[in-house]
C-alpha cells in the first residue's frame, strides 16, 4: 500500500510549499508582481503552481523507491497526521499574516 501514503505525502509537501508561496506573496509586493506576470493574475499562478507541485511530487515519489523509503511514505498514520498539522498551520499562518497586514495598514 505504499502508493496510498505517497499521495498524502505529495499533498503535504505541496500544501507546505504553496502555503509558503501565499505567505511570501502577501509579505512581498515584488514577489506578488512576479506571480501576476506569470499568468496575468496572482490567484491563477498560485493555483497552477499548486497543481504542478502536486503532480511533480506525486510522480517523483511514485518513481523513486529510495525517496519513498527516506520519507517513510508507507506510514499512512504519520502522513495523515502531518497533513492535518501542516494544513492547519498554513491556514493559521496565512490568517495571521493577513490580520497583521490589515492592522498595520
Amino acid at each position: 500500500m505504499k502508493e496510498s501514503a505517497t499521495s498524502i505525502a505529495s499533498a503535504v509537501i505541496t500544501i507546505f510549499l504553496t502555503g509558503c508561496i501565499i505567505i511570501a506573496h502577501d509579505v512581498s509586493t515584488d514577489f506578488k508582481q512576479s506571480l501576476v506576470a506569470l499568468t496575468g493574475h496572482h490567484w491563477i499562478s498560485v493555483s497552477v503552481i499548486a497543481i504542478v507541485l502536486f503532480v511533480l511530487f506525486s510522480g517523483l515519489l511514485m518513481s523513486s523507491k529510495s525517496a519513498r523509503k527516506t520519507l517513510r511514505a508507507d506510514d499512512i498514520g504519520l502522513w495523515s497526521t502531518t497533513l492535518i498539522a501542516v494544513t492547519l498551520t498554513m491556514i493559521l499562518g496565512i490568517l495571521a499574516v493577513l490580520i497583521a497586514h490589515y492592522l498595520v495598514d
Binding site: 502508493e3 496510498s4 501514503a5 499521495s7 498524502i8 505529495s10 499533498a11 505541496t14 500544501i15 504553496t18 502555503g19 501565499i22 490567484w43 498560485v46 493555483s47 499548486a50 502536486f54 499512512i76 497533513l83 494544513t87 498554513m90 491556514i91 496565512i94
Partner: peptide, 18 residues
C-alpha cells in the same frame, strides 16, 4: 478564503487517490 481554498482540492484528490 481565496488562498486557503487551494488546499481543499488537493486534499479531496488525495483522498480519492488513496
Amino acid at each position: 478564503k481565496e488562498h486557503i481554498f487551494v488546499f481543499l482540492p488537493l486534499i479531496a484528490l488525495t483522498l480519492s487517490i488513496t
